[in-house]
Write a protein that binds this DNA or RNA. Structure first.
Lengths: 207, 207, 207, 207
DNA sequence: GATGAATGAGTGTTCATTCAT
DNA sequence: AATGAATGAACACTCATTCAT
């Protein structure tokens, strides 16, 4: 990866926000240039094209998104506590990188656009592997049951979070969350606990 | 809601597919008109504008999406079986209306576009209410625990499904699903069971 | 060929002039649209693209350029007179379609742009064939010599004309042609006679 | 004229080729800079502007194009042989400087761009004068006829060559010239002889 | 002397929409 | 009711050129 200068970083920050809010097609490089206070031509000049800017954006954010699961794995705490911290780590991380996740969601899910950064897939595989090890610990200690499809656990965590967030207006209403602060607070407390409980329940559930 | 003629229905079908595949901004009315074999001007003529066509599309699909939870609620089967069927109903429904859910996801989540069809919110509230009743049955029978935040259950079901689907290429790879048929089959069997188990585990889990 | 409406014809007329004067790359569709008093988008709407408009232009002009050599061939006049008329026909025709010839010259000679309208090549072949027949008559009557490379005669006629015209300022100066009228008159008289003489000289020349 | 350094010379060589191939407007200074391995800003820096670079190019090439007609004039050979050598000299020279002639043709013929280098006109006048003298010799010796418009002879030579070259694909086809080598060889032999014959025929032709 | 960064005007094209019929 | 023609704004991108270093 090539080092980015200040202007490029600022452009990507603006782009990240706009792409997340308006979508890739819904955001024009004029909007980005105007918000970033740079000339329109700079986008092509810096990144080659709008498309390549998206790639640069995703690429530059992927490292930030990498979960610090390894260090968590090495912590010497009980399996349940470890799972709790892991879920919390997931939520915190996703919540912090909400924008880029939104973009990855929107632009690379069903659309023709392809996201074949090996880095991204590798990251997911790596995270999954550490996840597997953490679960294995709990299984070895007898805390967790044996029949667990670990690959399907991240979708529970991330999916629940996103589905909640996607329906933000709905949940703000029925949960009586008046401000965005209350909403964010709910995510950090109730929702996180809900997901933690869900995962733990599944880990001990014997059909 | 105004009754739609055959042409309008065909247009919406084409639009639904294209919006889901390419996004709203990524789809031009020319594409839609060409695929639907109608004049370009027809879209504006029939629906007023591209935006209003999206509204008409969502509106016309909402009734299709309505879950038949009520009849399920009235079935006389054990709570666990009822929850299993409910999850299956969710998955089947979402999977069938994948396109429109994709659109709702992409276009109405973070974007400026607002989805304040009262019908949509009402539907969710109604579904949630029936959901609540079904859970209540299990709680009353002593099968489920008492502390359950029912409002956060649908996000588990739908979120897990969507998160899985969003990462379709990834999961096809690591689960060794060679064809789309195998993939769809996995959703109908393993993934559905996984979600069923998750929900049930949570319903009986006592922290 | 598709029939062109009035607006399209007008656009092509404007384009013909501008392309000849400024070159294809030197002419913007905005210039054309402005001069033809149509919206910019009409060019793409009518012709698909700027490039395709050039094709349409050339195509529509090719039929006009076709020489009426056949009828000349059938005239019952002496070989020399026939050659004279033929040269005159060439000059008149090229002079009339100066613009499009200029374009064909500039855009399709060395540039990457390819002119593989079979119609154009066929026209040249057809003209060449008739040319051959007319020469044959003179050879059969004993007026012309036998060793004539007919294929190289058109380049003499057209080339001399174009080379003269390319150096219009130079020749206006040294031939003391003060106005464009005088210049055009010179082409119709002196230059035409010069070329006629050249061709006839070659036809009787025995090395 | 300012002396050019190595970089400038290289730039002009690249520019010459590209201008001939793609036209002036069709060639960007980026293309030139990239091919010449220099910074984009160098072109403006060295030559002032793209336009002025074209002028510099033409100017630097004009001396190369100057025919060595004077020395030929002084050779002591029969008039016909002298004319033959003169034509050959023309063709060889033009063929060697094909690129720059192509540019002069395309960019300075009908376009707004003006080529009023006095040097260019002077060169043509000078060449014409020598041409006149050579013809005069033949007329004085009684070999050539008296009524010759010498000013119209160069257009025959150059025009025939260019018209042939402009229709290179056409002539390669009908003359069955398979390779560019065969084509170039044809120019040096058949076409040259054809033009020589044409000129000589005209010089002795009495109407 | 030489250059990477930056600019604003310009390119061809596509857009959703409207209009006359 | 339905449509081909037409519009003006917007699009991503490239241009020749300038400027600070």
């Amino acid at each position: 990866m090539i080092a980015l200068n200040d202007k490029q970083i600022e452009i990507l920050q603006v782009a990240e926000k706009l792409f997340a809010e308006e979508g890739f097609d819904g955001t024009s490089i004029r909007d980005i240039a105007k918000k970033a206070n740079v000339n329109i031509a700079m986008i092509s000049y810096y990144f080659g094209s709008k498309e390549k800017m998206l790639e640069a954006l995703v690429l530059s954010r992927i490292s930030d998104m990498r979960l610090q699961l390894e260090s968590l794995y090495n912590e010497n705490i009980p399996p349940f506590a470890k799972v709790d911290k892991m879920v919390e780590l997931y939520i915190t991380r996703i919540n912090k990188n909400r924008c880029i996740y939104q973009i990855l969601h929107s632009e690379f899910s069903n659309k023709k656009r392809e996201l074949n950064f090996e880095g991204f897939t590798e990251m997911k595989k790596s995270n999954l592997e550490t996840f597997r090890n953490i679960i294995k610990e709990g299984q070895d200690s007898g805390d967790f049951q044996q029949e667990i499809n670990v690959a399907l656990l991240p979708p529970i965590i991330m999916g629940t979070y996103f589905q909640f967030h996607t329906n933000k207006p709905f949940y703000k209403q029925i949960l009586n969350l008046k401000t965005d602060e209350e909403y964010d607070n709910y995510i950090g407390t109730e929702l996180t606990q809900h997901i933690q409980k869900t995962i733990k329940a599944l880990l001990v559930y014997a059909n």
